[in-house]
Design a binder for these strands. Structure first.
Length: 573
DNA sequence: GAGTTGACTTAGAAGCCCAATT
DNA sequence: AATTGGGCTTCTAAGTCAACTC
């Protein structure tokens, strides 16, 4: 194993002592969070109207009204649930007088507020260079003061040192709580975590922290409880930090250990399809889906608290259709459900007959909204996996399958004699295969059609330019044949170079167009950042002489510094 | 076991910024 | 000089999973 030497420092970080029994650090010092700026009341000429009559709102009610006004152009504000939740929470902030007047959201007119904020944002854009520079400097000052901490012997970047500002909750998909008021976080809501022997962060004048604790078994610096779901939010370190990097490395090492025993595991679950125990058969079929289709584990969720989404263990009968025969294939399973972030998973897959028969059995005498795997949950599944391999859980399969797919696709798609842009296209295609496997989708960018058109225009122009250049080369050649002097020979060479350069440029544009088209609805970022062992990419870059900067931008190189240090061109996942 | 809580990873969208282009 | 478009950063929601309680 290579040592883990961080580029940014001269220390051999990896050589530092490792903590046992869950200790994450010995020393932790930071400045605490940056709070959201206080509410600034609207100027008196910006009015709110109820039933067409202007009405001065109390500061509390006004602030919440501005949250709605700022979202007026968003589709959210047309949704019944959003409006209902917003109005209910807004009324809680009103004075009793306001409450008795404002009884119907439809009669509220926020348009002056909305216009005011639009004008403000225009004004911000129109600021002079100096004004913009000043803001930038202030941000940098804040970053340097609050954006770093000392953990053990290193100065580390903090990921999110700003407290989330108040606003209206925007859930994804059909979220029952969309539109609710996300309240302002105050110092007395904040728990600070730091070491006893550090200089504690000081709360803003006249305020107190909720608590200062010294828990070195956790990695967070600051936490508070959020009011929508009642869950805890944290301030933690940046992905470039030692603590995140080591964990990331560990994750891929676990996936590599799975690689070593995956054949055995697969043989085992195939055997279990035949078990006489229902729970074992369900477990085995679920595991097969997780392995083959890279599904998420699928924890149970509290009904009515969140959007109705599922993963493998929480699939319901209504999410699958069984086709004994479909389009010339036997035993086809059609999946159609909403997964994490309410992203639709739709897939038709032929499966083994035994799986198909089992599914028929699991679905027998059930209603559409019954659980497919009624004898299984993620806890049972993960306990089983833990017994098969130390550290194995459902999500390790996603990491493993994503990484192994990248490695194998790179092998398959890379052509030794391609130029660099073509090699990068191959890389992106390998990345894309993984994104498709993991169902990482995005909404097609709003400007997609137009930007494709623009690119096509560029390509056409480049083609014209190329034929011109070719024509010029031809005539230069003819000229040289007649004249037979040095000068005209040189001219031919110049023209030849020009043609070559333009051909390259054209090729680059065409590759770009292909790449963009294929990427229309696919998000590559998530797999690149969370599922693909970066050492595979580093090795590929080294092997083919592709600069790492072409694959990873600066932030990504910082996050994957450990891998860039560690992997050589022979690295195998 | 079932339910709850806490800590951490994974996720797509929004917002911002800067460089290429007109 | 102004605009545009796209890449990068920021944001924070939504998952996973283990530990704990009963």
């Amino acid at each position: 194993m290579k040592t883990f030497q961080h580029n940014a420092s001269l220390e051999f970080r990896w050589e530092e002592e490792r903590y046992t029994d869950g200790v994450k650090w010995k020393f932790l010092e930071h400045k605490g969070p940056v709070f959201a700026p206080p509410y600034e009341p609207l100027p008196s000429n910006v009015k709110f109207y109820y039933d067409g009559k202007s009405m001065k709102l109390s500061p509390e009610a006004e602030e919440v009204a501005t949250f709605f006004a700022k979202m007026l152009d968003h589709e959210y504000t047309t949704k019944d649930i959003f409006r209902k939740n917003f109005f209910k929470d807004w009324r809680k902030e009103m004075t009793s007088e306001e409450k008795s007047t404002i009884t119907d959201l439809k009669r509220c007119n926020f348009s002056e507020m909305s216009e005011y904020f639009k004008a403000q944002s225009e004004a911000r854009k129109a600021m002079t260079k100096e004004q913009k520079q000043k803001i930038k400097e202030e941000n940098e000052r804040l970053l340097h003061e609050y954006g770093f901490c000392i953990m053990d012997n290193h100065k580390e970047r903090i990921a999110n040192f700003r407290i989330e500002p108040p606003g209206l909750f925007r859930g994804r998909g059909d979220h029952p709580k969309m539109g609710m008021l996300k309240r302002r976080i105050r110092p007395q809501d904040i728990i600070i975590n730091c070491s006893k022997d550090s200089k504690y962060p000081t709360p803003p004048p006249g305020t107190k922290w909720k608590e200062v604790r010294h828990d070195n078994k956790v990695t967070w610096l600051v936490s508070w409880t959020e009011n929508i779901q009642g869950s805890i939010k944290y301030i933690m370190l940046n992905p470039s930090s030692r603590i995140k990097g080591e964990k990331d490395w560990q994750k891929y090492e676990t996936a590599r250990r799975l690689k070593k025993c995956v054949d055995r595991l697969r043989a085992q679950y195939r055997e279990d399809w035949k078990s006489k125990e229902m729970r074992i058969r369900q477990r085995a079929v679920a595991l097969y889906f997780i392995d083959k289709l890279a599904l998420r584990a699928g924890n149970e969720k509290e009904e009515g608290e969140t959007a109705d989404t599922v993963g493998c263990c929480s699939l319901r009968v209504e999410h699958l259709k069984l086709h004994p025969e479909s389009e010339g294939q036997e035993f086809v399973v059609e999946f159609d459900f909403l997964g994490k972030d309410s992203i639709r998973y739709y897939n038709r897959v032929p499966v083994e007959k035994r799986v198909f028969k089992n599914l028929q059995l699991f679905m027998e005498n059930k209603e559409p909204d019954d659980d497919l795997f009624d004898r299984l949950n993620t806890s049972i599944l993960n306990k089983h996996l833990q017994e098969l391999m130390d550290g194995l859980t459902a999500k390790v399969f996603r990491t493993y399958n994503a990484s192994i797919t990248l490695q194998q696709q790179l092998k398959e798609l890379t052509n030794a004699d391609d130029n660099i842009p073509a090699k990068i296209l191959s890389y992106n295609r390998a990345n894309r295969a993984v994104a498709i496997l993991c169902n990482h989708q995005r909404a097609p960018p709003k400007t997609f059609e137009k930007s494709m058109q623009n690119l096509q225009t560029k390509i056409d122009a480049k083609k014209d330019q190329l034929s011109d250049a070719k024509r010029e080369l031809k005539s230069a050649k003819a000229d040289a044949k007649v004249r037979r002097d040095e000068k005209s020979k040189k001219a031919v060479e110049t023209k030849r170079k020009a043609v070559q350069r333009i051909e390259e440029q054209l090729m680059k544009l065409e590759v770009q167009a292909t790449d963009r088209e294929e990427n229309k609805q696919i998000a590559l970022g998530t797999s690149k950042l969370n599922y693909l062992d970066p050492r595979i990419s580093v090795a590929w870059c080294k092997k083919w002489g592709v600069p790492i900067e072409k694959i990873y931008n600066k932030t990504q190189r910082e996050k994957f510094a450990w891998a860039i240090d560690m992997a050589d061109e022979d690295y195998e996942f």
